[in-house]
Design a protein around this nucleic acid. Structure first.
Lengths: 214, 214
DNA sequence: TAGATTGTTAATCGATTAACAATC
DNA sequence: TAGATTGTTAATCGATTAACAATC
């Protein structure tokens, strides 16, 4: 089923649609118009209709959108109608935070394993997971049906860890390791960078600019 | 000094310029042309010249850009030529990860205090910081010259913590608390949302779409 | 049916890229 | 000076908004 390419701009708005619909579901709202949705999300009604129509005609003229139906469609589109298994590479503080974080579980993402190559960390227990050595990663991925690898090592190990993950068969990397330039990955590997230092630098710019009267 | 408005698109690229220049500095490169920079960053030379010129004419015809000079200018523009003090509200695992994280310190951002309103957590020590009660926040902000508050509480406390922060005088909030809809803040307060669940949902969409042959 | 609201086409706006004169 | 490369204007591309005919 070949579909048209979805622009980055649209993708970046999808989680907000999802959260918005989730809230409407929670509030037992049956139907919603693009105008009402637009007000909730502080965007234009036009944009909402355009965005939704890249995926299909989920609405009905004269009625609007059925909340339950639209939520179900969005859930499917986002792949949130099934579970996703993850591992964390780099068993540090961030890994600890992630294993405890219920927000991921709530949308069906489970951390199934922690991996590290530091002998001092291997064997330690985080929440209810025992840190395993990197050598066991490849088998684990197959056995536990792992879809996503969270990369959370210090920057010195970034390239090493990334290539270990890739050769172990991980196809999707969520990268929290700060790096110099972005790391390169083969074409069939998807990498999403979550550079907290970059976000902080952006915030710094905004703060600094605001302080100078803009 | 009133300047023109800088677009989101430009701001989002600034950290990468910074990191790129940092690398050139590290490699002791003296000068760089927009074409060379473009190759490093995988963008067009035109974009680099446009971007940099929103801040000033840092280059020289026939020569290019002096790396040291451009780096210094960028550092100033981003506010990275001075230190920034931060506090974390919500002393959980994420707070622990942040206090240990050297990446923030490296660019001059220091976590000076941890605050929580849970009596069981108050008094605990994270790295070298003792968790303080929220009542002490307002005074602390003034005494320690705090610029940024990192919001890292569970979602149930999001609104409460945010309004506590604002009334304590925090003007810049870096929000890691996942929420339903985005929280509203007064005009003079800057909030930057770092919604990890949203990022994960985006990744989920991309992974799911890729799995369906796109 | 009449009113409402979608889906979609057309218009506008903004951001990116190309081109080139200015100038080091 | 001649060659190189910027700063900047103009052209293109893509994304957002407006408008409205289709239709529930």
């Amino acid at each position: 089923m070949m579909e048209k390419n979805i622009s980055r701009a649209v993708i970046s708005r999808l989680p907000r649609y999802y959260r918005c619909l989730e809230k409407l579901m929670y509030d037992h709202v049956d139907r919603v118009s693009s105008t009402e949705l637009a007000e909730m999300m502080k965007v234009t009604a036009s944009q909402i209709r355009q965005d939704l129509n890249t995926f299909g005609g989920f609405g009905q003229q004269g009625y609007g959108y059925n909340v339950q139906n639209l939520f179900a469609e969005l859930t499917k589109i986002l792949g949130l109608d099934r579970e996703h298994n993850m591992v964390v590479i780099g068993a540090g503080n961030l890994a600890r935070a992630f294993t405890n974080y219920i927000g991921f579980k709530r949308i069906g993402f489970y951390i199934k394993g922690l991996f590290d190559n530091n002998p001092e960390v291997i064997g330690q227990t985080f929440h209810d997971l025992t840190v395993k050595p990197m050598e066991e990663l490849a088998d684990f991925i197959k056995e536990e049906n792992i879809e996503i690898g969270i990369l959370a090592v210090p920057w010195e190990y970034l390239n090493e860890a990334a290539s270990d993950m890739i050769s172990a068969g991980i196809k999707n990397i969520w990268n929290f390791a700060p790096g110099g330039l972005d790391i390169e990955v083969p074409d069939d590997v998807i990498i999403q960078n979550e550079n907290l230092s970059d976000s902080l630098i952006q915030l710094s710019f905004i703060v600094t600019a605001a302080g100078q009267g803009r």
